[in-house]
């Protein structure tokens, strides 16, 4: 069966799946989670992250938003702005 779900401390539980899918990261997520804690979060996988956010939440991110994302908190702020 599935591994135990990590504690969710973020407002969007879908992000746990996204981080698992994109970075194979199953550690705890918080607003402050950033590339420092997620080893595979490099510039290339950043593209995959943006794609996953766009498809999961059915929104389109702009280039500025793409650059704005430097932590999970940034993602949450963008999602709130998109009315997700």
């Amino acid at each position: 069966m599935d591994a135990p779900t990590p504690a969710v401390q973020v407002g969007y539980p879908e992000l746990v799946d996204i981080f698992d899918d994109v970075f194979q990261y199953a550690g705890p997520l918080s607003h402050d989670t950033s590339p420092d804690q997620v080893p595979r979060w490099d510039s290339l996988q950043h593209i995959a992250l943006v794609r996953a956010i766009e498809t999961t939440f059915s929104i389109g991110l702009s280039m500025d938003e793409m650059m704005e994302i430097r932590s999970v908190g940034d993602i949450e702020a963008i999602l709130r702005r998109h009315g997700v």
Partner: peptide, 8 residues
């Protein structure tokens, strides 16, 4: 996706 093109 132009964004992906310009980014990477």
């Amino acid at each position: 996706d132009p964004k992906l093109w310009y980014y990477g």
